[in-house]
């Protein structure tokens, strides 16, 4: 068996890339990474530690154009005889993996949260995290898009070879005009720790106490839907059934009632802490640790405690 794993290295190698390579290694067989763009060879070689045998890099493709990436990955899959292609389930994968599925006639498992089990099925999140499904692929080739934070990256090997590759990516009709990247923020779907707040915070001017705690913890920030709808916070922070679905190790929710649609996006979190003035708030039923109290007092106190703990 041969596994090809696509890594987006345009902003360096992220934890999710190491997870995808570790996952591929555990599938068994040779692991080849395909990537593109300008990431330096030394950084790419580090993927060998997580189980890659070789990294192929197409330096001529400098965008995340879905048609070009699809052609490039399909060429690489052919050239190494891959029977499985692995992605990390991020925004690039969501655009490219379905295209590749059609091109390779390979069944796509999107949002895998585990390795395939003995019966050949793979577990995925369905109903926005309210349940799991076991998916079977009916074709000889398959594509697995792995949800971030689903397995621990394991660095047991050493650096691997990095080779230039021509993926015959072809041309595109899509012209990128500008790219806006918020500086220094942790991408929400990848964050291990998340501090989130809702309408209980009363106004955007009060988000300082949320950001202070996030900063002390090294966490990303998130919010409930109404907060994004009224423009207190940017849309990309909106978590829930109609926002981003996340599964961090720790989710701290302050001033969020815990409506079913909100829970749908966060109940994959390993540990949930809820801060709410109302002891009847439904969120407490989904929480591991609960604090009945005023977020305006509790959040700064928690920030101080975290700072003290971190020294």
């Amino acid at each position: 068996m041969s596994v090809l794993v696509y890594i987006n290295s345009s902003t360096g190698i992220h934890k999710s890339a190491n997870e995808a390579v570790t996952y591929s290694k555990k599938l068994g067989g040779a692991v080849t990474v395909i990537t593109n763009g300008g990431c330096d060879a030394v950084t790419l070689a580090s993927l060998g530690k997580y189980g890659a045998d070789k990294v192929l890099v197409d330096r001529s493709v400098n965008s995340n154009d879905d048609q070009q990436l699809t052609r490039m990955i399909a060429t690489a899959a052919d050239s190494v005889g891959a029977t499985t292609v692995v992605f990390s389930h991020d925004l690039t994968a969501k655009a490219v993996a379905p295209r590749l599925s059609v091109r390779m006639k390979a069944g796509l498992i999107s949002g895998a949260i585990d390795l395939p089990s003995g019966d050949g099925t793979t577990k995925v999140n369905v109903f926005s995290g309210k349940a799991f499904g076991a998916v079977k692929v009916n074709t000889s080739k398959k594509i697995i898009s792995l949800l971030p934070n689903s397995i621990l990256p394991e660095a047991t090997g050493s650096d691997c070879a990095v080779e230039d590759f021509n993926g015959n990516a072809g041309s595109t009709n899509v012209k990128v005009i500008t790219t806006k990247k918020p500086e220094g923020e942790i991408p929400l779907p990848e964050a291990e720790l998340v501090v989130s707040a809702g309408r209980g915070l009363k106004g955007p001017e009060n988000w300082g106490i949320v950001e202070d705690l996030a900063k002390a913890l090294g966490a990303a920030t998130a919010c409930s839907r109404p907060v994004a709808d009224i423009g207190w916070r940017p849309h990309h922070e909106h978590v829930g059934q109609t926002g981003v679905a996340i599964r961090p190790n720790l989710y701290i929710a302050a001033g969020i009632s815990g409506a079913i649609q909100h829970l749908a996006g966060v109940n994959g979190s390993k540990v949930i802490v809820v801060i709410n003035t109302d002891q009847e708030a439904p969120f407490f039923k989904a929480a591991d640790y609960g604090i009945v109290g005023d977020a305006f007092e509790v959040l700064p106190r928690l920030t101080e405690a975290v700072k003290k703990f971190k020294g």
Partner: peptide, 8 residues
């Protein structure tokens, strides 16, 4: 190409 076999 794929089928859902079961749910939990």
């Amino acid at each position: 190409l794929t089928s859902f076999v079961s749910y939990t």
